[in-house]
Simulated scan of single mutants.
Amino acid sequence: MTYSRRGFLALSGLSALAVAGCGTASGSGIRNTTTLRYQGSAGAVTPPELAASLGYLGELKLDWVGNTISGPQDIQSAASGQIDFGGAFNGAVVKLASRKAPIKAVISYYGSDKDAYSGYYVLEKSAIRSPRDLIGKKVGMNTLGAHAEAMLDIYLKNHGLSRAEAEQVERIVIPPVNTEQSLRQRQIDVAVLGGILRDKALETGGVRKLFSDFELRGAFSAGTYVLTDRFIKQNPETVRTFVTGVGKALDWSRTTPREEVVARMTEILARRKRSESADALKYWRSYGVSAPGGRIEAQELSVWSDWLTERGDLKSGQVQVDGLFTNEFNGKKAAG
């Protein structure tokens, strides 16, 4: 599933009030709540929702408080105590942590693999064939300073372009639903497309893939769910149930025939009655999380910390990645 949750540069303006309110759970000591408040995604089934449907959360209940299309907003809401967990692109998690928000990533929930990836597409007859051909060209993406731009920077750097040369590649913000049209009308030279929008463009034809994030980095987890340090301290068994259950759901989705997964998701949408369309589920292929149980690897966060530091958005050493995540509550043990 592809989410519009990557525009996290706005986090640099996170107010002191929001940070001060991190982890506002009342009282002290262990309480192990039996309900978790969260935000969903219209027309989609999140891993926790799938876990609940499969019975992997046991007696733990999910309390849906609304939908979000913004990962940065989702994790800010978790940090300020408006919800209990939120998810975002790992770069957004690093950025929020740099603002001293006491949060911790506990499990990966989406990423890129052979079925779920973002591709960088040009028109079939485009003269663009190599990274250096992108100099002076326009690349359309959903937001700046996030996943799509990071992948572009890594692609250019890996192929020998200097920072000055890479800066000559113009990055244009375009709503995802308009990206394909903008490419076909030659308003941009390259379109970043993923999920249903990518599949529809390929069905129409006339476009050619220049590269994809999966081809660039292999299978990798791109986003994590976070909770506040205080919530984790007060609800360790709740967190363990949540993380282990979501991890089982991720594994189930990866090992179960796609048709069965889509059928289960369609059933979930029908039962929750949120006045939403299930059409997009027909295009679902994978959550993109390759690690067993959604376990987090340090590199999945450090790659963005390094990128943000190189851009000048963070100071060297500003974020200690090792303290930003934990696999302590994940029932799936590390391989080996």
Rank of each mutant, 00 (worst) to 15 (best):
Lys61Thr: 05
Gly58Glu: 03
Gly119Gln: 12
Ala191Asp: 09
Thr24Ala: 14
Gly206Val: 11
Ala25Arg: 10
Gly55Leu: 08
Val93Tyr: 10
Ile232Trp: 00
Asp113Glu: 00
Gly13Gln: 15
Val139Ser: 13
Gly27Ser: 12
Ile128Met: 04
Glu310Gln: 11
Thr204Ile: 13
Ala92Tyr: 09
Val289Ala: 10
Trp252Phe: 14
Pro176Arg: 01
Gln320Cys: 01
Gly7Glu: 04
Ser26Ala: 15
Leu210Arg: 06
Leu54Trp: 08
Asn158Gly: 13
Ala92Cys: 15
Ala146Cys: 03
Tyr3Cys: 00
Tyr225Ser: 14
Ile128His: 05
Ala335Ile: 10
Arg295Cys: 06
Arg254Lys: 14
Arg163Lys: 12
Ser316Cys: 04
Leu281Asp: 01
Tyr38Ala: 00
Leu57Ser: 08
Gln234Val: 10
Thr143Ile: 05
Val177Ile: 13
Gly55Val: 05
Phe242Pro: 06
Phe231Gln: 04
Gly140Tyr: 03
Glu165Ala: 10
Phe242Ala: 04
Trp307Ser: 08
Tyr38Thr: 01
Ala263Gln: 09
Gly55Met: 09
Ala201His: 02
Gly55Thr: 09
Ser4Leu: 07
Ala146Leu: 02
Pro72Arg: 02
Leu96Asp: 05
Gln82Lys: 13
Ile75Pro: 07
Arg208Pro: 09
Met265Phe: 08
Asn330Gly: 07
Glu59Trp: 01
Glu203Pro: 03
Ile154Val: 13
Lys100Ile: 02
Pro47Lys: 04
Glu170Gly: 00
Val139Lys: 06
Ala291Cys: 05
Glu124Ser: 15
Ala79Pro: 04
Asn330Glu: 07
Pro47Gln: 01
Val93Cys: 06
Val246Pro: 08
Leu14Thr: 15
Val177Gly: 02
Ala51Phe: 12
Val169Tyr: 07
Gln39Thr: 12
Arg285Glu: 12
Ser41Glu: 14
Thr179Arg: 12
Arg230Gly: 03
Val262Gln: 10
Glu297Val: 08
Asn330His: 11
Arg264Cys: 06
Gly66Trp: 00
Ala146Glu: 03
Gly336Glu: 10
Asp74Gly: 08
Thr326Asn: 11
Gly119Asp: 05
Gly91Ile: 01
Lys315Ala: 15
Tyr283Met: 04
Ala249Arg: 11
Glu297Ile: 06
